[in-house]
Simulated scan of single mutants.
Amino acid sequence: MSDNQLYESHPPEERIEEQIEILKKHETFVYAGFWMRLWAYVIDLIVIWSINGLVIYPIFRLFNLSLDNTSFFSAITITTTITFYAYFVLMTKFFQQTLGKIIFGLKVETIERNKLDWATVLFREVFGRYLSVTIWLLYIVIAFTKRKQGVHDLLADTTVVHERNAYLIQKQA
C-alpha cells in the first residue's frame, strides 16, 4: 500500500479523533512548560515595552508631563503599570492568550475547562502576576508542578496548555 493510499484510507476526521483519544488516555492537555512560558512572557514584555514607547511616552511628551519614574507613585510609573496589567487582563479574557502565547501556540485554560470569567482572569493576571513579578523565584514553581502551574495559576485554578491539543479536545466535546 502506498503512502497516498494509506493517507486516503484515514480521512482527516478519523486522524483527529485518533489524536483526541490519545490525549484523553493521557492527561487531556499537554501542559506548557517553564521555558515555553518564559519565552512567551519575554515577547509579552517586548510588546508592552513597545506600547509604552509608541503610545504612552509620546503622550507624556506631547503634554509636557514628567517622564521621571524614580518615584513609585509618579504618573509615568502608574500609567505604564496600568498598561502592563491591562494588556495581560484584556488579552487573557478575550483571547485566552497574549501575543507571546499566540506565537508559541499556548493558551490559558481553567483546570475544569470552564470559560474564563472576569474574576478568574483578574485574580490570575493582577493579584497572581503581582506576586510573581514581585518575587521572581515564584515563576520557577512552573518547572516542578504536575500541571506546569505557576503560583498565579495555582491561585486561580488555571494552567497554560498547548493550543492545538486544547482545540482538539474542545472540538470533540
Rank of each mutant, 00 (worst) to 15 (best):
V47F: 04
D68T: 07
L45K: 13
F72C: 08
I51S: 03
L45P: 00
I82A: 14
D44Q: 05
T83C: 14
T81C: 07
F63V: 10
I82V: 15
T79H: 00
F60S: 03
A75S: 12
F63T: 13
A86N: 06
R61V: 11
D68W: 05
N69E: 13
D68G: 07
F72Y: 14
S74E: 02
D44C: 01
I43Y: 01
I76T: 08
L54G: 08
N69R: 12
F63A: 09
F60I: 05
I76L: 08
N64G: 10
L54E: 02
I48W: 00
S50R: 09
L67I: 10
L54H: 02
I78F: 07
I78Y: 04
S50T: 15
I59Q: 10
L65K: 11
W49C: 13
S50Y: 05
F72Q: 15
Y85H: 09
I51P: 00
A75C: 01
L62S: 08
D44I: 09
N64F: 06
A75L: 13
L67P: 01
V55G: 07
S71N: 13
S66V: 08
D68H: 09
F84E: 02
L67E: 11
D68R: 10
G53F: 00
L67S: 04
S66R: 03
W49N: 13
I76V: 15
V55P: 06
L54V: 14
I59A: 11
S66E: 08
V42K: 10
I43D: 02
A40I: 07
F63N: 11
P58W: 06
F84Y: 13
S71F: 03
I76M: 08
G53A: 14
Y85N: 10
F84P: 02
P58I: 06
I56S: 09
I56N: 01
N64P: 00
T70V: 11
I46N: 03
P58G: 05
Y41P: 06
W49Y: 15
I59D: 07
S66G: 09
F63K: 13
T80H: 03
T81N: 12
Y85P: 03
I78L: 15
V42M: 12
P58F: 06
L62M: 12
A40L: 02
A86T: 14
V42T: 10
T70S: 15
V42E: 04
V42A: 11
A86Q: 10
A40N: 03
S66H: 04
L54S: 09
D44G: 03
L62Y: 13
L67M: 11
